[in-house]
């Protein structure tokens, strides 16, 4: 498999996804610090983050360094040429001369695809506004594969299904694995109609109450209500805190059920869940490292 950039999960076939997950599995002991390998020695990654991020930026940095590469960061927008009015196109043209791979987070949707058109080196989309965040989807899939099962999965997606790019990308990816998807959300945060129509023919999907499916699901994927995505703050306050998962409701779940969350959480998962064997969200965040190692390795060196 060869791909030059990683912009959207839609650009990947099932075979591509499976290949990345297998590669991530090979890199897991390296990510855990149990094994050492330096295939990316002498290679440089440029983190260009035009929006704040802790987890994603750090995990790319860790992934690159665990493979022997090095990292440069552009996080303080004020300190760069961007504050002087430089376009993204120019920034990318310059940085692609310095680095071997660019990781970009940008507030505008489509920014990563545009950056790729202006770059001499591979571009990885680390989130473009409410658009795509393919490495999050891949690490979600890796977590599901590792901690549950990918094929014939029964998964409940809970929370902000309207604005969450994580949920939209994950649903699209799950259509490739014969999943059964249950949607749990306040009515105002339901999956957009046109999106639902688009996927209905490819996956079994239905809107439910969590109590009705808790006994049969393999994965409960919870999302935060993202205040920054709401065009109207009043609308946000109407739904903020409207759902919560606690250890009580999980008592009825299968012992193998896993609870996932892209983090950061606010109050949608009670800390009582952290102490149950169902909680996998911190492990999920860590799995971002081997998955990003696989992606960087593939983009920079091609097939193993």
């Amino acid at each position: 498999m060869k791909f030059k950039h990683l912009i959207s999960i839609d650009d990947l076939s099932k075979k591509d996804i499976e290949y990345i997950l297998e590669l991530a599995e090979k890199f897991l002991p390296v990510a855990q610090g149990k094994k050492r390998t330096t295939p990316l020695e002498g290679r440089l990654l440029a983190n260009l983050f035009f929006e704040p991020s802790t987890r994603t930026r750090m995990s790319f940095e860790v992934a690159m360094k665990r493979l022997g590469g090095d990292v440069i960061n552009m996080t303080a927008q004020e300190a760069s040429s961007v504050a002087k009015g430089e376009t993204l196109a120019d920034t990318i043209k310059v940085v692609s001369k310095y680095a071997d791979v660019i990781v970009l987070r940008h507030p505008l949707e489509g920014a990563a695809r545009f950056a790729a058109e202006n770059s001499d080196v591979p571009v990885v989309n680390a989130g473009d506004g409410a658009g795509q965040h393919p490495t999050q989807t891949l690490l979600d899939l890796y977590t599901i594969k590792k901690e549950s099962k990918l094929e014939n999965l029964k998964i409940a997606l809970m929370g902000d299904l309207k604005y969450s790019r994580t949920v939209h990308s994950l649903i699209k990816a799950l259509t490739l694995f014969n999943a059964r998807i249950y949607l749990v959300s306040p009515p105002t945060l339901a999956l957009p109609e046109d999106f639902l129509e688009e996927i209905k023919s490819r996956v079994r999907v239905e809107e439910v109450k969590l109590e009705d499916v808790i006994e049969e699901i393999d994965v409960l994927y919870v999302t935060r209500i993202q205040k920054e995505r709401f065009p109207d703050e009043e609308e946000y306050f109407k739904v903020a805190g409207s759902y919560k998962v606690d250890a009580g409701i999980l008592e009825r779940a299968k012992s193998s059920l896993i609870v996932m969350h892209p983090l950061p959480r606010v109050d949608e998962i009670d800390i009582s869940v952290d102490r149950t064997p169902h909680a996998k969200y911190f492990q999920q965040t860590f799995y971002g490292v081997p998955v990003r190692m696989a992606i960087l390795h593939e983009l920079l060196l091609g097939d193993l």
């Binding site: 376009t87 993204l88 196109a89 505008l108 949707e109 489509g110 920014a111 695809r113 506004g129 409410a130």
Partner: peptide, 13 residues
């Protein structure tokens, strides 16, 4: 129509 799309920015696009 997506006001947050990169094509509606001042980029050369």
């Amino acid at each position: 129509p997506n006001r947050n799309c990169i094509t509606n920015s001042r980029e050369p696009i």
